[in-house]
């Protein structure tokens, strides 16, 4: 186990750090009285993000006929949320672009899963768990499975064993490694100096009821986002659907006819539609490839 811990720590340290602009953006947008000038000053300081904003706003799909060449103008047109989306996506894109062999998933699966979960978590934060900051849920969900990058290669060595009848993949990871991907994700989030609510939500994204009371709702939103992604087929393959729903959901959802026939299908559809929009608007080059 010490050998595992050492190797895991090595892998953990080899992950590239998250950009400081992204961290500052998360901080800035988490308090609701920020100034737009602060926002655009932050973006202008980060060349790659500024370029990405201009590129996105000038893409034909945005439908603006003039060419926008000033960063503050682009930021105003995009809106704070879209800018944060771009920054987060930019910061995870390179890191997530590798196949998780231990989870039998291909190079794009982790990115798609994280993006789908993030969009789903934001919608859940708005509609299922009231009084939750949707942007925190979004950011936490984008990083919730980053620990799989560390665990994957160790899991690949265990592939000979038959993982049939796994009811909870987290227990399976615990049995073999004494740690699970959520805990490793939280360690990485701490290393990246993400805010405490994100670290808690990431750490407990499979057991939100065990998070600190102040962060339970965000954790639940991430938990649900993760589940919705797996249900729609945007999982990381080997562990797809093999998780348990936390009983905490019963505090927020009453299972009745309306929920079954209207609310739940509507939420699932809206998540998928927004995912498709985001993919079309912000991931043009990935789509073209």
């Amino acid at each position: 186990m010490t050998d595992f811990a050492k190797k895991a720590a090595d892998r953990l340290n080899s992950l590239p750090p998250i950009s400081t602009t992204t961290l500052k953006l998360i901080d800035l947008l988490s308090n609701e009285t920020y100034q737009t000038t602060e926002l655009s000053a932050l973006i202008e300081a980060d060349l790659s993000l500024a370029a990405r904003c201009l590129k996105t706003v000038n893409a034909p799909i945005f439908g603006i006929k003039r060419t926008i060449s000033s960063v503050p103008h682009a930021v105003t047109l995009l809106g704070a949320r879209a800018v944060l989306d771009l920054a987060l996506q930019l910061s995870v894109r390179g890191t997530y672009n590798q196949a998780l062999t231990g989870y039998a998933s291909s190079a794009d699966d982790l990115y798609r899963h994280s993006l789908y979960s993030a969009i789903a978590a934001r919608i859940c934060a708005q509609r299922i768990t009231p009084n939750t900051n949707p942007e925190s849920a979004y950011a936490a969900a984008l990083f919730h499975d980053v620990g799989k990058l560390v665990l994957s290669s160790f899991l690949a060595e265990k592939e000979t064993e038959d993982p049939e009848n796994i009811t909870h993949f987290l227990d399976y990871e615990q049995q073999h490694f004494g740690i699970d991907h959520a805990q490793i994700s939280a360690q990485i989030a701490q290393k990246w100096h993400l805010p405490e609510d994100l670290v808690q939500a990431i750490s407990f994204h499979h057991q939100p009821s065990q998070a600190l009371p102040a962060y339970r709702r965000t954790a639940l939103a991430v938990h649900l986002g993760d589940m919705f992604a797996m249900m729609a087929g945007f999982g990381t393959q080997r562990d797809n659907m093999q998780y348990q729903m936390d009983p905490m959901i019963d505090e927020f959802v009453v299972r009745n006819r309306k929920w079954e026939l209207e609310t739940l299908p509507q939420i699932m559809m809206d998540i998928h539609e927004e995912y498709q929009t985001v993919m079309a608007k912000f991931n043009q080059e990935e789509q073209a490839q």
């Binding site: 009811t167 909870h168 797996m230 249900m231 659907m241 093999q242 729903m245 739940l264």
Partner: peptide, 16 residues
């Protein structure tokens, strides 16, 4: 039509 383990089947859209 798979579903995640869920005591109350709140999210069991697969079965439906």
């Amino acid at each position: 039509g798979a579903s995640v383990m869920d005591t109350n089947n709140t999210f069991d859209i697969g079965k439906r």
